[in-house]
């Protein structure tokens, strides 16, 4: 099979492979205020109000059978603003990411050209024991598929709720549920639900040496909407996402590690030559060092990597600088 035929077939079978955000903040909030929460209840454990900004640059390539077919250069800006009002926390997050692609576009297949994301989380803290949160996410993607679908836009609207409970002063257990509505310029609308569970631990008090750990699991089952008129069918594959975060803060110096692995099970085996593919794996990892005082200016950086493993391999390396201010 010629490479330029592969993507065309995938267009009608696989659709979007979106790397999304790392966001390993499901039941606890990161010590780094520029990192947004995913499940809104996690925002309830924020201690102070803050405003944070981030700029990132990433580059990498796509290879098929060890042949490089595209080069990627992307940059992004992010802003995260959080307010703590008595026992209520409100957090708003905005992100814009653009990717320049170098290549002849001879090999069809999905390429994300730009992405805009927004999140709003509202959480209420009760008796320093439980937080309950409600939130909304929107993610808008503009993608290239082939010469006749070279700028298609997909928008996902996600409404979610979650809870996080603190036990024995250090353990955090929680979960959430969300519903996603997907709208696209070339497919019919689609909807799916997902559930998430998380376990976290935070040792130490603010101003002291602190350690945070979190592991979470989320799953959304397959959802399919049939073709209608000229609009193609839409498929959301069964997707399992695990996230992990570990943070150590010593004298205000924060060492942060986090990772996410997403596995999308194809609804049928995809074969090219002798190779069979049953799933798509997306892995995102990052490690950073930041100065995070109890109040005042914070500054830091992250080095990260993103990989997509399918019949093609995408590999990107990212460098990100963060600056934020934490209010008293």
């Amino acid at each position: 099979m010629r490479k330029d035929q592969i993507g065309l077939i995938l267009l009608f079978t696989v659709f979007l492979i979106l790397p999304g955000l790392l966001s390993a903040q499901m039941v606890t909030a990161s010590f780094d205020p520029t990192q947004p929460v995913f499940l809104p209840a996690a925002a309830g454990w924020r201690i102070d109000s803050f405003v944070g900004f981030s700029y990132s640059e990433a580059n990498g390539s796509r290879t098929i059978d060890d042949d490089e077919v595209y080069k990627f250069d992307s940059s992004g800006v992010k802003a995260n603003i959080g307010g703590k009002f008595s026992n209520i926390s409100v957090e708003a997050y905005l992100e814009q990411q653009k990717t320049d692609v170098k290549g002849e576009y001879l090999v069809n297949g999905w390429i994300n050209l730009d992405r805009e994301s927004g999140r709003l989380s509202v959480a209420m803290l009760g008796n320093d024991f439980v937080t309950v949160g409600l939130g909304g996410h929107t993610d808008s993607y503009r993608d290239y598929f082939d010469s006749s679908h070279d700028s298609e836009t997909t928008t996902e609207t996600n409404v979610l709720g979650s809870i996080s409970v603190k036990a024995m002063d250090v353990i955090y257990i929680g979960g959430g549920f969300g519903r996603v509505k997907e709208q696209s310029t070339h497919t019919v609308d689609n909807n799916w639900n997902y559930a998430a569970l998380g376990l976290g631990a935070i040792f130490g008090e603010p101003g002291e040496t602190r350690f945070r750990f979190e592991y979470s699991w989320a799953n959304s089952p397959e959802a399919e909407s049939k073709r209608q008129g000229e609009e193609e069918e839409a498929i959301h594959f069964d997707t399992t996402t695990t996230r992990m975060a570990a943070e150590l803060m010593i004298s205000g110096l924060l060492f942060s590690f986090s990772g996410k692995e997403e596995t999308r099970k194809l609804n049928e085996t995809f074969s090219i030559g002798d190779e069979d593919y049953n799933d798509i794996k997306i892995m995102i990892n990052e490690a950073g060092v930041l100065w995070v005082p109890q109040n005042g200016l914070t500054l830091g950086f992250y080095f990260g990597s993103k990989e997509t493993d399918f019949y093609f391999k995408d590999k990107l390396s990212e460098f990100k600088v963060n600056i934020a201010y934490i209010f008293e």
Partner: peptide, 14 residues
Amino acid sequence: RLAIRGNRQVSVGI
């Protein structure tokens, strides 16, 4: 280059 000094004990720079 940009750097911040914290508590006269640590520094972080980009």
